[in-house]
Nucleic acid binder design. Structure first.
Length: 342
DNA sequence: ATGTATGATTGAGC
DNA sequence: GCTCAATCATACAT
């Protein structure tokens, strides 16, 4: 069954008698399932508007239009000549084409052809899941305070708990902490300005392409769906660029962390009183030196260290006590003498 | 400079 | 998620 579109195209080839003569001949007035379209007019007009028959008049003197040979070279020549046409000329042609009363019908036909071809099959919008790598990076950037809402106080973030505890112990680490925060802010600002740039560029480019496609859609069949698809593709490309930005930002944060927050590099012994408090608890609970969550909280508060530091201390203490009970006996006696063994 | 002490990290096991 | 054991990296004492 011939569609309106197909019949239109076939009738167009009929305009070129040579071709039709040799190939399958279809009536220019073929009735499509969509009704009769006065095809000869359409083809004539569009051909003229497109300039395909531009030099017909020159040739008319020698050759009748029906006998004129249209070979591939002629057509190529005409296509190539479009490049040489001035913008004004092109605009005129475009305008003439758009004003053609049969243009909407012709356009509809082209759209239908497209609808029925494979173009739409691979057009199906796939709901692709979010890139797991991108999600990881996003989560990390938010966790580090680079992306997401700005953090004001040093006590606001959960990750800063140990740092703020350290800061309360001595000025040294407080200084380092502020240094760390300053550097993090620097990274944050850089990240956001770059991200903004990318987004701006993406939006600019997208709107440019959309405008271009919309403009072109007046002359060739471009469905809104296709434009959406193009926008989707552009966004995907740009997000892959953003991915690189996020990756390098994460790297920078990790380096910063390792430099400033890796406590192994800047280890400080706990204060004497803190060690005393911890030892007191340890030796007075020697039979079960495993402080509960509440006890850890209490010890952390008393010592001005974090709960995880308390946990670390007890972990180290238990293992080292076990390894050298003899040597630890002295210490045990010292504390046992003061506190009743539990 | 060297050895020891100590807080933190890592990986296995539960 | 906690603990153990080994280990790292630094602080501290000598």
């Amino acid at each position: 069954m011939l569609t309106k579109a197909q019949s239109t195209l076939k009738s167009e080839t009929c305009q070129k008698p040579d071709i039709v003569k040799m190939e399958d001949q279809v009536s220019p007035y073929h009735t499509s399932p969509y009704g009769i379209i006065p095809l000869p007019h359409l083809t004539m007009n569009t051909d003229v508007k497109y300039g395909l028959y531009e030099n017909t008049s020159d040739l008319d003197g020698q050759n009748n239009a029906c006998t004129k040979r249209y070979d591939v070279n002629d057509m190529l020549q005409q296509i190539l000549s479009i490049v040489d046409q001035s913008l004004d000329e092109a605009q005129q042609r475009k305008h003439a084409f758009n004003c053609n009363r049969l243009k909407p019908a012709f356009f509809q036909v082209l759209c239908e052809i497209k609808e029925k071809t494979a173009i739409n099959i691979r057009n199906l919008p796939e709901d692709e899941p979010q890139d797991p790598q991108l999600m990881r990076l996003d989560n990390m950037l938010i966790a580090e305070g680079v992306a997401g809402p700005e953090r004001s106080g040093p006590t606001s973030g959960s990750s800063s708990a140990s740092a703020s505890a350290l800061a309360s112990i001595n000025d040294d680490s407080a200084l380092e902490h502020s240094d760390y925060r300053a550097k993090l802010t620097q990274i944050r600002q850089l990240y956001h300005s770059e991200l903004e740039k990318y987004e701006q560029a993406c939006n600019d480019f997208t709107s440019h392409v959309v405008n271009l496609l919309r403009e072109q859609s007046r002359a060739r069949p471009i469905s809104p769906r296709e434009i959406d698809r193009m926008v989707h593709i552009i966004r995907k490309k740009f997000s892959s660029i953003q991915l690189q930005l996020k990756q390098s930002t994460c790297e920078a944060v990790m380096i910063l962390r390792s430099r400033f927050l890796d406590a192994r590099r800047k280890r400080r012994n706990f204060s004497k009183t803190a060690t005393e408090v911890l030892n007191e608890y340890f030796y007075s609970h020697l039979s079960n030196p495993y402080p509960s969550e509440e006890a850890k909280d209490e010890l952390a508060r008393k010592c001005g260290i974090s709960v995880s530091q308390v946990s670390n201390w007890f972990g180290n203490k238990r293992i080292r006590y076990k390894k050298n009970i003899g040597k630890a006996q002295e210490e045990a006696n010292l504390y046992a003498g003061i506190y009743t063994i539990n």
